[in-house]
Computed example of a mutant assay.
Amino acid sequence: MTISEVSEKFGIPQDTLRYYERIGLLPRVNRNKSGIRAYTEQDCKWVEFIQCMRNAGLPIEVLIEYVGLFQQGDSTIEARKELFVEQRSRLLKRMEDMQKTLERLDYKIAVYEQTVIEKEKELQKPEK
């Protein structure tokens, strides 16, 4: 696939894909005879992985570290696992914080909805 096809498939700007490759987040993409990037299925799996992790809020630096460890081979399996265990813990904490915020927003919305109902009732009362 070309960079434009990958960009369209994943909804990621071409400049972002180039940036990911330049900083080592995306392993080097092969090029065809004309020098145009030729993304393989494996490259697309990396893009999908990066997108998933970024959407979950994992920092680019952590993902660069992971890619570096991955490229070093099986001797880094434990280090990769620990990296993900730590990130999972951070993600769970953020999810808990977000749940609390959601509950607070739900409460505030309910208060405002009740206020609106009470105001409408007042307006509908006949004048004396």
Score class of each variant (00 low, 15 high):
V111P: 05
G24V: 01
V116D: 01
V116H: 03
E61R: 08
D74V: 13
K108S: 04
E48W: 00
Q124F: 07
V47N: 04
I3H: 03
G35N: 06
L102H: 13
F84C: 10
L105C: 13
L58W: 04
C52A: 14
D106E: 14
G11K: 12
V111K: 09
F70S: 15
S75A: 15
A79P: 05
D15P: 07
Q114S: 15
W46C: 02
I109Q: 12
C52N: 04
Q114G: 13
D97E: 14
R104E: 12
D43G: 00
D15M: 10
V111R: 04
E113D: 10
S34H: 14
Y19K: 05
R94D: 12
R104L: 15
I36M: 05
Q71V: 06
Q51G: 07
I64S: 02
K81A: 06
I77M: 09
F84K: 03
L58E: 08
L26D: 02
K128L: 09
Y107R: 08
K93L: 10
F10H: 05
T76I: 01
Q124G: 07
Y112Q: 10
Q42W: 09
E127F: 14
V29W: 03
T115R: 15
V111M: 13
C44P: 01
K9V: 02
F70C: 08
L69H: 06
S7C: 11
A110Q: 10
T16Q: 11
F70I: 02
I23Y: 02
G24H: 01
Y19C: 04
G24S: 00
E122G: 04
E78K: 08
L58S: 10
Q71L: 06
M53R: 11
K100F: 03
K33T: 11
V47F: 04
I109C: 06
E113I: 09
T2R: 15
R31S: 05
F70M: 13
N55T: 06
P59R: 12
I36W: 11
I23R: 00
T101M: 14
L92S: 11
E78F: 14
F70V: 09
L123M: 15
T101W: 07
D74T: 14
L69V: 05
N30W: 13
Y112C: 06
A56P: 02
I60V: 14
G68E: 14
D97N: 13
S4H: 12
P59Y: 02
I3T: 00
A79H: 04
E118M: 01
P126K: 11
T16Y: 02
I3V: 07
F49Q: 10
V29H: 03
E96L: 15
D97M: 15
Q124M: 12
Q14H: 07
E118A: 09
D43Y: 00
M95R: 13
D43T: 02
L105Q: 07
R80Q: 05
Y107G: 02
W46Q: 01
F84D: 02
T2C: 05
T40H: 10
V6H: 08
E86S: 10
T2P: 05
K119L: 14
V85P: 00
K45S: 12
R22W: 04
Q51A: 15
F49D: 01
I36P: 00
